[in-house]
Design a protein around this nucleic acid. Structure first.
Lengths: 195, 195
DNA sequence: TCAGGGTCTGACCGATCGGTCAGGCATGCT
DNA sequence: AGCATGCCTGACCGATCGGTCAGACCCTGA
């Protein structure tokens, strides 16, 4: 064998992304990844210090974008925060569908790992922003439902192209989010309180 | 020791429910459950044929209610199907929060087990009903986001009482669901809840 | 008193997990 | 030629998994 180092490194990363997305982090063994690449388990552990480091490198780009979004959310309040959070998260979720799928369901345990120390706080702030920083239970519940639902949808609808999924999700979020108290005049949606 | 059989049986079931909800099915060992109950792992396997049977008995009530909802959804179309699906699933998710939490994230693998053979089809039909049986991508995406988001919210908001969570979710769903094209003015259907 | 059945347990099993280690095999530099 | 370095591997490790099994400990009815 003896491929160029960067090549094998990338192949392992790609294989791990594929397997993690389907069977989860804990449900995927290093043996599984090695088999898919066509190398030995020891080779996987030659390129990555351990299983956790493999996951961390896999998630790094998505986490970087999430951090950026968190920074942009910094001083915003009310409807502005809602809109930035909605656009930012929908965009992130669509772009990083596979990474989202990896985290799906294993959130609590994975968050214990040092590489993901801040994700919990960031996602809390994101949820808060999407709720327009309102403390009404309805607003907070709606924000959580939407964030979790978007994640799940992106992980599941792998066959829908980005350009179709993104606007559909954004339309949904804008319709579903609880409008904040200070609401500048908004063209009334047709089916508002009717049914 | 030698408690009454039904007592230990129930304690194991309750402990398993608690642990599964927090660390997931695969992430919880029989040893963990036994430790929480205060008995040996062999005792757990005396009361339940295997780990899978323990999970099946745990999920049985929730699955029964899900089946009922599926039956009620049978002949409905359009807005009526949407409303029944929304009310039925919100009610189910709030009542069986812990069971929902167990399934969270381990859906694909758990569905392979015979006890849950039909859940995938039922949840597909449920999603279809919530979309008003529309084939527009926006409607299907919205339905999936809502179902997944509700599940996640119920699993996470353990501190909110049922009476507060249920109406908040229902309001959100009615606001977020894509209205179907043919919407006949429907009087508030007095759902005969328990048939 | 004793037999039998329900309840429970420690010891054990094979399989698999993440991870370690010494060494094989090219390749390139001196 | 000799040596160092980078890439890769089989063999192995301790831990833990789900599950089995023979037997101990009650309680009850004959």
């Amino acid at each position: 064998m003896a491929r160029a180092v960067s090549e094998t490194h990338g192949e392992i990363l790609a294989a791990a992304a594929r397997r993690f997305a389907v069977t989860g982090y804990r449900g995927t063994s290093l043996q599984d990844i090695a088999r898919e690449v066509g190398c030995s388990k020891a080779t996987v552990l030659y390129h990555f210090a351990n299983k956790e480091a493999l996951l961390a490198e896999l998630m790094a780009p998505a986490i970087g974008v999430l951090q950026d979004l968190d920074d942009r959310l910094g001083g915003l309040t009310g409807a502005a925060a809602q809109e930035v959070a909605a656009q930012g998260f929908v965009d992130l979720a669509v772009r990083f569908r596979r990474e989202i799928a990896v985290l799906r369901g294993e959130f609590p345990e994975l968050l214990c790992q040092p590489a993901f120390a801040h994700i919990q706080e960031i996602s809390d702030r994101l949820r808060d922003a999407l709720a327009g920083h309102s403390d009404r239970p309805g607003a907070r519940i709606a924000a959580l439902v939407l964030l979790a639902g978007i994640s799940e949808a992106c992980a599941e609808f792998v066959d829908i192209p980005d350009d179709e999924l993104r606007p559909a999700l954004l339309t949904l979020v804008r319709r579903a989010v609880e409008p904040v108290a200070v609401s500048l005049p908004q063209p009334p949606t047709t089916e508002d309180k009717d049914s």
